[in-house]
C-alpha cells in the first residue's frame, strides 16, 4: 500500500529525514518510535504533504501512485489521513460543518453522492459512540477551547468519519490520561480492516499495549535504524534507545 524509498526531506534548509525506507502493506499496523527530534513527526507530515518540508530525494508510492505529485487535499481524498499531534483550532466553524465539508469532499473524490446535514447527523451518531464523545461537541467550533484530550478524541472522530485507507497517528497518545488513551485506542482498533493500514508514531510504548503493532521501527537521526516485531517496543521500553543508537 505504501512504499517509501530513500526519503530525504529538509525544513528551512536543514535536512531532517536522511534516507527513510519503509513498506506498509494493507491490514498492517506499524509503529514508528524514536527519541525526540529523530524525525518521527516530520515523516508523518511529509506523507500528508505539509508545505513546510521539502522532499529533496527519494520517493513515496501509495496505492501505485506517486504521492509526492499530489496536493495534500488530493492525498486526503485518496484516503491518507493524518491525526495531528497538535490539532488546529478554527474559531466560528462548527465541528459538524467542518466534518461534513471534509466528508463530502472525500465522497466527491470517490464519485459518491454528497450528503445533506440531516443525513450526516445519522452518520455521526454511530461514530460519536465509537470515541465516546458528547453530541454537543458537534456544535462547538473546531478544536476551539477543547482540552488536550478532547482534541485528540476529535482527531479519531474525524478518522472514523473519513474512513481512511492509510491512517497516520502522530503522537496521538501524548497528553492523554489512561482512560482517554483506552478510548482513542479502542476507536483505532474498531476501525481496523484488512484493506487499510495504520502507522502509529509514538514516543512511548504505552499506546502499543492497546494498539498492537505488526512491526516496530526505530527512527533516529532521520533514518530507520532498527525494525522488529511488537516485542521490540517492549525492549525499548525496558532498555531505552541508547543501545539501538550505539548499534546503528
Amino acid at each position: 500500500m505504501l512504499k517509501i524509498e530513500n526519503l530525504h526531506a529538509t525544513a528551512g534548509g536543514k535536512e531532517i529525514l536522511k534516507g527513510v525506507s519503509l513498506t506498509v502493506n494493507a491490514g498492517e499496523v506499524h509503529a514508528i518510535m524514536g527519541p525526540n527530534g529523530s524525525g518521527k513527526s516530520t515523516l508523518a507530515q511529509v506523507i500528508a504533504g505539509h508545505p513546510g518540508f521539502e522532499v529533496t530525494q527519494g520517493s513515496i508510492v501509495y496505492d501505485g501512485e506517486n504521492l509526492l505529485d499530489l496536493q495534500p487535499e488530493e492525498r486526503a481524498q485518496h484516503g491518507v489521513f493524518l491525526a495531528f499531534q497538535y490539532p488546529v483550532e478554527i474559531p466560528g466553524v462548527t465541528n459538524a460543518y467542518f466534518l461534513r465539508s471534509a466528508y463530502n469532499e472525500i465522497r466527491k473524490a470517490r464519485g459518491e453522492q454528497q450528503v445533506d446535514p440531516m443525513e450526516f447527523l445519522d452518520v455521526m451518531e454511530q461514530k460519536l459512540k465509537l470515541v465516546d464523545m458528547d453530541p454537543d461537541m458537534l456544535h462547538r467550533s473546531v478544536n476551539a477551547g477543547f482540552s488536550g484530550g478532547e482534541k485528540k478524541r476529535n482527531e479519531i472522530l474525524q478518522m472514523a468519519v473519513l474512513e481512511p485507507k492509510l491512517a497516520i497517528l502522530d503522537e496521538t497518545d501524548s497528553g492523554l490520561d489512561i482512560d482517554a488513551l483506552r478510548v482513542v485506542a479502542g476507536g483505532v482498533n474498531a476501525l481496523k480492516k484488512p484493506t487499510n493500514a495504520t502507522i502509529v508514531v509514538t514516543h512511548y510504548q504505552r499506546l502499543l499495549n492497546y494498539i498492537v503493532p505488526d512491526k516496530v521501527h526505530v527512527l533516529a537521526h532521520g533514518k530507520i535504524v532498527k525494525s522488529g516485531g511488537k516485542e521490540l517496543a517492549l525492549e525499548l521500553e525496558a532498555r531505552g534507545y541508547d543501545w539501538v543508537l550505539e548499534a546503528a
Partner: peptide, 11 residues
C-alpha cells in the same frame, strides 16, 4: 490552519 483543512480533503 490551511494545512489542517487540506489534510481533511478541502482545497
Amino acid at each position: 490552519q490551511i494545512f489542517y483543512c487540506k489534510a481533511r480533503g478541502l482545497n
